[in-house]
């Protein structure tokens, strides 16, 4: 039995690192699309760059699929996946 919060937020949008996407552009996308602050966008961008991936949003499957689709439109390499224990 999972806690209620897990049931409410069981999906994630993950952005993967690739050598093409510019740091400036990734920061811009995170600020512009998600409405994150410059600081938060910068932190997430560095996480993608240094760890190879970052969970940039969590929520319902429908919302996360929408976010992933948007990331693909920007050309970021992103996926929508169910949350796991390690998230």
């Amino acid at each position: 039995m999972r806690p209620a919060e897990d049931l409410a937020k069981p999906w994630k949008t993950v952005v993967f690192n690739d050598p093409v996407n510019l740091m400036s552009y990734v920061s811009y996308v995170f600020q512009s699309y998600f409405g994150y602050s410059a600081e938060k966008a910068h932190t997430l961008m560095l996480e993608v760059h240094e760890n190879g991936r970052s969970v940039v949003a969590t929520g319902t499957r429908e919302a996360m699929e929408r976010d992933t689709q948007a990331m693909h439109e920007y050309g970021l390499w992103a996926a929508c996946q169910p949350m796991t224990e390690s998230d």
Binding site: D18, P19, V20, N21, L22, Y25, Y28, E73, Y74, G75
Partner: peptide
């Protein structure tokens, strides 16, 4: 910027920059 990014993604694949 989006179009330039898409074009760079394609060129990177063609150049083997993955």
């Amino acid at each position: 910027t989006k179009g330039l990014n898409d074009l760079r993604l394609v060129l990177a694949v063609r150049l083997g920059i993955d």
